[in-house]
Amino acid sequence: MTALKQPRSVTLSAAHQIPFHTPGMRVGLLGGSFNPPHQAHRAISRFAINRLQLDRVWWLVTPGNPLKDSNGLRELAQRAGAARKLADDPRIDVSCLESVIDTRYTVDTITYLRRRCAGLRLVWIMGADNLAQFHRWEDWRRIADQVPFAVIDRPPQGFRALAAPAAKALERYRIAEGCAATLAERRAPAWVFLTGMKSALSSTGLRNPDGSWKASLAK
Rank of each mutant, 00 (worst) to 15 (best):
I49A: 07
L30I: 03
S216C: 14
R91Y: 00
Q146R: 15
Y105W: 14
S33P: 00
Q6V: 12
F134R: 03
E171I: 14
A184E: 04
H41K: 14
M25S: 09
A180K: 00
F20Y: 13
T11Q: 15
K5E: 09
R116W: 13
P23Y: 08
L60I: 11
S212I: 04
V147Y: 05
S13T: 09
R141M: 12
V192F: 01
K219F: 14
W191N: 02
Q39D: 12
G24N: 10
T2M: 13
V100G: 01
F193T: 00
P23H: 05
P209K: 11
G127R: 00
P36S: 12
A167G: 07
A82E: 04
R154D: 01
A167Y: 02
D102L: 13
L194P: 01
A87W: 01
N65Y: 09
V27S: 04
M1S: 15
N208K: 15
P19R: 13
A163H: 10
R172A: 11
S13N: 14
Q146I: 12
A176Y: 09
G32L: 03
Q6C: 08
A118V: 12
A40N: 09
I152R: 00
D210V: 11
K68C: 08
L4C: 08
V100D: 01
Q53P: 05
G81I: 05
D88C: 10
L194F: 01
R56I: 03
F193E: 00
F34M: 12
V151T: 01
I18Q: 04
P36I: 03
R186M: 13
S199A: 06
H41P: 02
P63K: 06
T22K: 15
R8N: 12
G127H: 02
S199Q: 06
E185K: 14
L131F: 09
R26N: 07
V107L: 12
R174N: 07
L12I: 08
H16V: 11
A215N: 11
A132P: 05
Q17V: 07
P165Y: 10
G64M: 06
S216Q: 15
A163R: 13
Y112R: 02
A169H: 11
W58L: 10
S212L: 11
G28Y: 05
I125K: 02
Q53T: 12
L162S: 04
K68A: 06
L73E: 06
R84D: 04
T103G: 06
D145L: 15
A43P: 03
D145N: 15
S203N: 08
A166G: 03
P155N: 07
W59Y: 09
R136F: 11
A188Y: 05
I101V: 08
W124D: 01
Y173F: 15
P189E: 06
W137H: 03
L52H: 02
L73S: 05
N35Y: 08
R186N: 08
L73P: 00
H16M: 12
P165K: 07
A77F: 07
I175G: 06
R116C: 06
L60T: 02
I125C: 00
S95W: 04
L97V: 03
R56L: 11
A218H: 13
A181G: 09
S99V: 01
P155Q: 14
T103A: 07
T11K: 09
D153K: 01
L170P: 01
Y173L: 09
R26A: 10
F34D: 06
M126E: 00
P148N: 07
W59I: 08
I18F: 04
I110R: 06
K198E: 12
L30G: 01
V61K: 06
S33K: 04
